[in-house]
Amino acid sequence: MDEMNLSPLWLSFKTAIIATIIVFIVAVFLARVLSRRSFPGKSVIEAIFLLPLVLPPTVVGFGLLILFGKNGPIGKVLIEWFNIQIVFSWYAVIIAAIVVSFPLMYQSASAAFQGYDAHLEYAAYTMGASKWRVFWTISFPLAWPGLLAGLVLTFARALGEFGATLMLAGYIPGITDTIPLAIYFAVESGNMKMATFWVIIIVVLGFSAILWLNWWSKRHMMDHSNNKKA
């Protein structure tokens, strides 16, 4: 513990925040577009979106390695055109976090957008509101409790990602050593004190996130059921 290196904490936070922002924007957009539409192939698309949720993270990591590896279809283009190598870099940590946490946000957002009466949006349209205005003034505020729940779960999942990260980013101290990886390699090297420290940190973070979410949801529910006067 004398030489405590806190880089896993900052790296994990940085990664989780960036991944959460990207996942939130993409998942909310896709969920809004797909939630109230039905077309042939929708189930297949949604199954692909949710696949990382049911697959072992190592399988997700393997798939990402194939895609982003030096000879992979995306990896090759990135190296040849932009000279960016994904594998064993911080980008790999972010990509792994994005892919594994995406299903949680998509599922929450999809449920949130289906959770209110579609007539509310139609009513706004009949009053002349544009799609953009309807989204920001009706859809988003009404879906917000569900979106927030998804946001917290996404952040927690991104923070705790291990398997896919290890496959795609490996363990490079200072570059790809997130907290879960630091725990694993601390145990591997017999440094139980270090492992315990990181375990406590991640348990506290996860517990706080869920506690806050429950508190916020209850408060929000009470606001809606109480006699709310402006």
Partner: peptide, 22 residues
């Protein structure tokens, strides 16, 4: 013509009042 451009008032059966607005 899109809904927004029709200038038609519509009173829905469940009224569809926006619950988060006064």
């Amino acid at each position: 013509t899109p809904i927004q451009k029709r200038k038609i008032g519509y009173l829905f059966q469940d009224y569809a009042l926006f619950p988060h607005m006064t």
